[in-house]
Amino acid sequence: MGNITFIEHDGTEHIVDIAEGKTLMQIAMDNLVPGIDADCGGSCACGTCHVIVDSAWVSATGIASDEELMMLDMTPEKTDTSRLSCQIKASQSLDGVVVRLPEFQM
């Protein structure tokens, strides 16, 4: 069993267990990590589960699809390593992954 670290905008860390096969968004919601809204429930259609992947983990988490990028373009806090957490599936290969949450979801 590995773990995932979510870091809130104010620096608060949440280290939670990986649930194999679930998305990072679902894992965050299941563990009551604040700062993710997930308005569309994981359909890549709203942009409110935005996370910023630690640069060391970019290759492990993969790159955003075109449709994901279009949703990310709607947030002013988008960075080069921004992803929608509903589009990242958790697996053992992500053991230790670190993602940061933006100040706001929109």
């Binding site: 809204d37 569309c40 429930g41 709203c46 279009m70 949703m71 706001f104 929109m106």
Partner: peptide, 18 residues
């Protein structure tokens, strides 16, 4: 409660939702 359709989804999702 947030999973409603009133703001639409996709690229035209309501800009003023917040």
């Amino acid at each position: 409660a947030r999973n409603h359709l009133s703001f639409g989804f996709g690229v035209h999702r309501c800009m003023g939702n917040r």
